[in-house]
Amino acid sequence: MAIALALAAAVSWGTADFLAGLASRRVSVPVVLFLVEGGGLVVILAITLVSGKPFFDDASDFWSALGGGLSGVLGLGCFYAALSIGTMSVVAPISSAGVGLPVVVGIATGNRPSAVTALGLAAIVAGVVLASREEHADSEAAASSRRAVALALVSAIGFGGFFALTDAPSDASVPWTLVIARSAALPFVALIIARGRPRLPTRKLGLGIAAVGTVDLLATALIAIANTKGDLSVVSVLGGMYPVMTVMLAAAVLKERVAAPQVLGIVLALGGVGAVAAG
């Protein structure tokens, strides 16, 4: 059950990320982030209130969900920014490296990874390096690519933090974990929008972006439920396979093409993710 839920989450996430990435090329990233997070929040808050689910008994679950939400929004904002200026087929696999963060934390606190896990981490690192080696016609394009890769790496850290911090509160209450995580950073995003005063999208586009938030919410809900059914490391890694969907959509819709070394890097990164799960 946990594996099926995590894979369904990956498909939903990959689709939502592709659509939000497209929107970020037309609308300011903070606006897209606010609409995606806000759209999902409206739905999950209504569901939670109607269902009458009890709030957390332990205050630590609240703070952990809050921290996970902040980490996740940081990751999502950087990810959308990277998708808006970089090659989606490259950015998406790099962001998935965040699933290795719990493993790295475990190593730092004294855990010894298995040989398969260590090999997977090495493959992820090598894959990120190869995938980020793009050839560009001019220095401006090269600078944008480097910026996109840097943002994707930061997003990986943010996503890894989300996976780790929302594990315990999800065991207590999946709906309230999602409500707290979704609402955590909205005031800060709103402040950024107010200060920057970007051009707002049309009503139709705005509603479309908010609808993407419900798809993203579905993925988040599926991964949160999966965390209660199976092992965190396995669920996190399978959920982290969302770049496969994003890459497929980018190839089919945007006709993106990547060089052979980058293809190898993408395969290595995703293969490393699978190896970490197996370990």
Rank of each mutant, 00 (worst) to 15 (best):
V129N: 06
R146S: 12
A142V: 08
A142W: 04
G127Y: 02
G127K: 05
A137P: 10
S139K: 15
S155Y: 09
E135I: 00
A142M: 12
D138C: 09
A141S: 13
A150Q: 01
E140Q: 15
S132Y: 09
E135N: 09
V149P: 03
A143V: 13
A142S: 13
V154K: 08
S144Q: 15
R147H: 04
S155G: 11
E140W: 11
A143P: 12
S155M: 05
R133W: 09
V129W: 10
G127H: 03
R147T: 12
S155K: 10
A131M: 05
E134Q: 14
A152R: 04
S144G: 11
S144R: 15
A137M: 13
S139I: 14
S144A: 15
A131H: 03
E135S: 13
D138E: 07
H136G: 00
L151D: 04
L153N: 04
V128F: 02
H136A: 07
A156C: 06
R147I: 00
L130D: 02
H136Y: 10
S145K: 02
S139N: 12
A131S: 12
A148V: 07
V149K: 03
V129L: 12
A141M: 08
V149Y: 00
E140R: 15
A150S: 08
A137E: 13
D138V: 12
A131R: 03
A148S: 11
A137D: 15
L153R: 00
L153T: 07
S139Y: 10
A141H: 12
E135Y: 10
H136R: 03
A131Y: 06
S145C: 08
S132R: 08
V149Q: 04
L130W: 00
A150Y: 08
V128Q: 01
A152W: 06
D138I: 06
S132L: 08
H136N: 09
A156M: 06
G127C: 08
S145A: 15
S145M: 06
A131L: 07
S155W: 09
S132W: 10
A141T: 14
H136W: 09
A137Q: 14
L151E: 02
A137C: 10
V149D: 00
A156W: 07
S132I: 03
E134F: 07
A148C: 09
V129F: 12
L130S: 00
D138Q: 11
E134G: 12
V154T: 14
A150F: 11
A156I: 07
L151P: 02
H136V: 11
A131Q: 04
V128A: 05
L151G: 03
G127F: 00
V149C: 03
S155L: 04
A143T: 14
A137R: 13
L153P: 02
R133I: 10
S139M: 11
S139C: 00
